[in-house]
Amino acid sequence: MFELSPQDWVAVQLSLRVALVATAVSLPLGIAAGWLLARKDFPGKALFNAVIYLPLVLPPVVTGYLLLLTFGKRGLIGGWLADHLGVVFAFRWTGAALACGVMAFPLMVGAIRLSIESVDRRLEDAASTLGASPAWRFATVTLPLALPGVIAGAVLAFARALGEFGATITFVSNIPGETQTISAAIYTLTQVPGGDWQALHLVVIAVLISLAALIVSEWFGRRAGARVHGT
C-alpha cells in the first residue's frame, strides 16, 4: 500500500515550501549576479565569481557550518538580524531555505549568466538609440531574451534546493515539522529498523516532484524560446 504518514506529509510540504522560498528569494539576486558576471567588468570580479561558485565545490557540511557561524544566533550576521529585525534562521525552516538557496545559487547564476551572455548586444545598442535607459533596456530587451535561461536556472535551483541535505542538516539540524525536509526524513527513516519501506514512499514522492519540475521547465523553456525566436 502506498500511504504517507502525517509526518511524511509534513516533510513533503516543508520541502516544497523551503525550495519555493529559496528559489523565489534568490531569483532576483541570481539575475543581478548573472548580469554582473555576464556584462560588467569590475575590480574583484574573479573573487566575486569564486565566492558564488564556492558552495558548488565545498563539502555541503562545510557550507552548513559556515552558515551556522555567520547566520547562527550568535553569528556575525545572524545575531544582528535577530536583535534588530527579529529574523531568526537558526533551527527554523527559514534557515533551511537559506541553506538551500545558498547551495542552489551557483547553478542558478550559471544558467542565467550564460543566457544573458548569449543575448545579442547589438540589440541592446539598438534599444539605446531608441531612447531606452540602461534599466529599461535590461527590462525590455535583455531580460525577455534571456528568459528561457532564467527559467532553466530557477528550475535547476528549485530541484537542487529540494534535494539539499548536508548544509541544511548541519545548519538547522533535523527537526520534524520545522527543518526536516524530504531528504532529512528519508535519512532518518533509513536509520530506524524497518523504516526502509516508509523511506521508499518518500523516495517516490521526491522522484515525482523532480520529474514534474523538469517537465514544467521544459514546457516553459520551449514557450519562452518560441517567443524569443518569434515567427
Binding site: L123, R227, V228
Partner: peptide, 10 residues
C-alpha cells in the same frame, strides 16, 4: 543598422 536589429520578441 545594416542588419535591421528588430527586437525578435516583439
Amino acid at each position: 543598422f545594416q542588419d535591421g536589429r528588430l527586437f525578435p520578441h516583439l
